[in-house]
């Protein structure tokens, strides 16, 4: 199969999937739309957050990040840039880490969302959270929830064999090395500069040596 043909298939695939998704999961636009051209368009959406089903009626412009922070009061996910540049808003949706500021809440009908609050709480920390405390993988703490959500997903990605730029051979199973972790974590900025400690924390959770 040549490259152009592959692209054609995948483009069609996207269209088909997109259509199916909208047929099944299109949020129902409420009456508010009729209130006037300028009135915010509200839509209902339901998804699971940290194991609990949540139903919301939201301005369709609301990002997943703002829905979590402003509507559900889950302020552990941070807004650092609101433009997908810093990673502070990283959450895990359907098993994959995403920048929650770069996606609209209404796009996640039926989604399973894990935020930092869902990983663990003081007194019952997730091993990654505990390792960040032990290795002092933060200072101000503002990028930390995003770093931790990212780190948890990174280890799953490595386990699943998802390749990265750090690997010489994309078909080989990636290993938990410092270079792999640094490459995969590079979407999460820590301006306090605790990177060296963060890699040690993740390495410990992965059971390796940094």
């Amino acid at each position: 199969m040549d490259a152009a043909h592959k692209l054609e298939i995948s483009r069609r695939g996207v269209l088909i999937v997109g259509a199916a998704a909208s047929a099944v999961a299109a949020p129902s636009v409420s009456e508010a739309q009729a209130a006037g051209a300028d009135a915010p368009v509200l839509a209902k959406v339901a998804f699971e957050v940290n194991g609990t089903r949540r139903e919301l009626e939201l301005d369709t412009r609301t990002t997943l990040l703002d829905a979590l922070r402003e509507n559900l009061n889950l302020t552990g996910s941070k807004k650092g840039c609101d433009h997908g540049q810093c990673g502070a808003c990283t959450v895990i949706v359907d098993g994959r880490r995403i920048n929650s500021c770069l996606t609209l809440a209404v796009m996640h009908e039926g989604g399973r969302i894990t935020t930092i609050e869902g990983l663990g709480q003081p007194g019952a920390l997730h091993p990654m959270q505990a390792a960040f405390v032990k290795h002092d993988g933060f200072q101000c703490g503002y990028c930390t929830p995003g770093q931790i959500c990212s780190a948890v997903a990174v280890l799953d990605e490595i386990k699943a064999g998802v390749p990265s730029h750090a690997g010489a051979d994309v078909t080989a199973a990636p290993q938990v090395t410092s270079d792999e972790l640094r490459e995969r974590m590079s979407g999460n900025i820590c301006r306090c500069g605790a990177y060296s400690n963060i890699i040690e924390a993740i390495t410990e959770v992965a059971g390796g040596n940094a």
Binding site: T115, I116, E117, L125
Partner: peptide, 21 residues
């Protein structure tokens, strides 16, 4: 010593200015 506010920060429970619901 580990930071005493560490568990709050790593669990997203430390409230920053914009978050004082």
């Amino acid at each position: 010593t580990d930071r005493i506010e560490g568990p709050l920060k790593v669990s997203g429970a430390a409230p920053y200015a914009y978050e004082r619901r």
